[in-house]
Design a protein around this nucleic acid. Structure first.
Lengths: 212, 212
DNA sequence: TCAAAAAAGGGTGTTTTTCCTGTCCTAGTT
DNA sequence: AACTAGGACAGGAAAAACACCCTTTTTTGA
């Protein structure tokens, strides 16, 4: 019987190579190829046929897991994307699910669980560990949703805040009037319940909008 | 011929299991046991004999890589500790080396490099990737050494900077005049080569003086 | 297609931060 | 006793950040 093909998208070479070895020992699966980021995946798919399942890291340089998953949902809707990552914060999980991930596994699962997840995904179309279910439940019961309301410009703005630029310089870089920037800031003060720029910077770092 | 025994200390189960598979394919090495953190390692060493090499993650709950390495240097000085981690910031690398690590590998190495590192460590007693050498050279040529020279009050001050307090409030909390605080700040601007409070905050977080 | 909402920009005043220069005191040196 | 270095602190000015309230332009969706 033909084994199901799998691709691993993960920037840490050793980890992806090692996981590949593990998967190749499973009866039903074999690893087809590895990529270091989303851009590389897109390149690869020009010459190779798509795998059945893609194991996707979330934090990658160049093109991260969320963007890549979104791209796959549009261009290869039949491919099952399973997130495999250390990020267990609510917003990351929600973003991946929204982007179209069919599963979400933390890197501290064991081999057996990984195999079960792969099999369930083939059989039923999805597999989610308990953490994810928790988050989803919280999310609809309204608890702690918050952050989701941030717009793209606000995200961009928050990133620029985490530098030594003044507001005037940031306005310049974003091609907006300093006054508009003032508005962005004041909105975020209210929305995120902080009092000054330092609060915004800490928020951005805490929520991985900006990574040091 | 007897293979060299290796232990892996790493909190992400899948990763340690996967790396174990990789290592078990190497001619000269076999994995003896896995632990999820330093405390578990200490427990394990009460009943099992020490391995030749320990691959050590740095970020772990309960007892992290640095503490664990320090403990090993004192209690099992013959064991080679190799750090295997994603942290590539100067201070972490220096801390691990000081704690007694004989090697420092980033998780994006490939299998071949891992094998070479293990062999070199057995043969010569150490193996360091290029990044580490860079950091060490910088460290003695004086460049970017910086942080080491920070005084206790400065550390304390940097921590307080990472809050929404004004300088006046910080001065109050430190029982010093706001003008003294001004001096602290201006000194740090020069010493750390940054232009404003945001720069100090980013520095503090980057160097783990303040953790979000 | 037109009204409502959202985004962008503006005016003005206060507070905080940043950047100077310079004094006083203490401790260690010679 | 004079000399030096560094920490604590001050005054004052200029720049940036923050606050509040208001207008114009763009988008949107009913």
């Amino acid at each position: 019987m033909e084994k199901y093909s799998i691709a691993i998208i993960e920037d840490h070479t050793l980890l992806s190579e090692a996981i590949a070895e593990v998967i190749n020992k499973f009866d039903l699966f074999k690893v087809d190829f590895l990529c270091k980021n989303g851009a590389e995946l897109i390149e690869t798919l020009k010459t190779k046929s798509a795998p059945k399942i893609i194991l996707m890291d979330v934090n990658m340089p160049i093109m991260n897991g969320i963007e890549t998953t979104k791209w796959l949902s549009e261009n290869y809707p039949d491919v099952y994307v399973i997130a495999l990552t250390v990020e267990e914060d609510e917003s990351t999980i929600l973003k991946m699910i929204r982007a179209g991930a069919k599963g979400y596994l933390l890197k501290d699962v064991d081999k057996k669980t990984l195999e079960i997840a792969l099999i369930k995904t083939i059989e039923t179309g999805f597999y989610h560990s308990n953490i994810v279910v928790d988050v989803l439940v919280n999310s609809i019961t309204g608890k702690s949703n918050t952050k989701e309301a941030l717009k793209d410009t606000e995200i961009e703005f928050l990133k620029l805040l985490c530098s030594e630029m003044t507001y005037k310089e940031i306005a310049n870089k974003m091609n907006l009037s300093p006054k508009t920037i003032d508005g962005y800031r004041d909105n975020l003060f209210v929305k995120l319940d902080v009092k000054n720029r330092i609060g915004l910077v800490i928020y951005a770092i805490k929520n991985k909008i900006f990574t040091c």
